[in-house]
Amino acid sequence: MAQVTFRIFRFDPEKDKESRYQDYELELEPGITLLNSLNRIKSEQDSSLTYRMSCGSAICGSCAMRVNGHALLACKTQASGLVKDGVIQVDPLGNMEVLKDLVVDLEPFWKSLKQVDPWLQPDVSDNPENERLQTPEQFQRIDDATTCILCGACYSDCNVLGVDQEFLGPASLAKANRFIFDSRDAKTRDRIEFISEMNGVWDCTHCGECSTRCPTEAKPLARIMEVREAAMQAGVHNNNGARHALGFRETVGRSGRLNENYLPPRSVGFLNIPALIGLAPVGLRMFMRGKNPPIIHHSIDKADEVRKIFSKFEDYRHHPTRSSRPDDGASD
C-alpha cells in the first residue's frame, strides 16, 4: 500500500478569509476510489472536510470535483491513477463560486439549463392513446445525449464559461441536442434558432474540455457539433457562426484551400458595415507587417478533385449514430 498525500482545497467562509490547501496522508488500499478515500479522510482524520456525494455509483452526479486541475466524478475514479509525485490535489469544480471546501454554488448551472426549455414539446394536436412510436434508430439518436447526469464537470472546465458566464455552456447545449434530435419533439426549428443566437452553439470554441471531462456518454462537444450540422441543414444561417461555416465551404470547395481574406467579411456579413470596420485594424496591422494573406488566392494542385467531392455535398450528409461513431471524448 502506498502512502499518498491528499492536498485538499479548504475554505469555510464562516472562519476563513482566504482559501488554503490542507494535506492529509492516507495509505491507499488497492482498488479504493477517490470518493472512498475522501470518506476515509473524513471518518478518520477530519470530519469537517466537506463535499457532496450521494449514489456512489456514477449516476447522480453529486461528487463531481477537480483533481490535479481537471473535473471528474470522485465515486467512479480509482485514486491510484491520480497520484502525481505522491500527491493528489483535490479542488472544487471551476466556474462556480465555492460555498465550502469542495462544495460549489450550482445555481448558475441550473439557471443555464433552464434556458434551453429542457422538456419535450410534442405536437399538441397529436395525442395518441398509446405511446408515440419511435424507431430503435430514433431512440439511439438521442441515447447518448440522455445519459447526461447533470454533474457539472463540463460546466466546470468549459473554457468559454471561464470568460463569459452568459454562455449557455456544454451541458445545456447537450440537453438542447437531446430534444432537437428527439423525433417526438415539434419545436426543433425554434430550438435550433434559439441556440444559434449569441451565447449559444456557435460561441463554443470546441476546446474539447467538456467531452474530455464528461463521465458519461453525453459528450457535449460531440452534441454541439451535431447541432451545428443540424442548424446548417435547417438553413438557420443568419449568424456569424453559420456564415463562417458557409464561407469555409465556399472557399475550400472552390480552391481546396481557405481564403483568409474572404472568410472574415463573409462571416460577419458583407453588408454589416460596423463589423467590417471592426475588422480593419487587424487587417491593417497585418498588412503593415507584410503578414496579410496573399491578395491573389491560389488553389491547391488538383483542386478539381475537391470540387467534385463538394459537388455531391448533400449526398454525403452523414448522420452519425452510436453504432457508427467512436466516443468523442475521454475514455469512460
Partner: peptide, 21 residues
C-alpha cells in the same frame, strides 16, 4: 402510467415495431 411517462418525454428503448421495448 408508462404511456403517460412516454408522452411526457421519457426516452424508452424500442421494439422493431417502434413500440416501447
Amino acid at each position: 402510467t408508462i404511456i403517460e411517462m412516454e408522452h411526457l418525454g421519457c426516452a424508452f428503448s424500442r421494439t422493431s415495431e417502434n413500440k416501447i421495448a
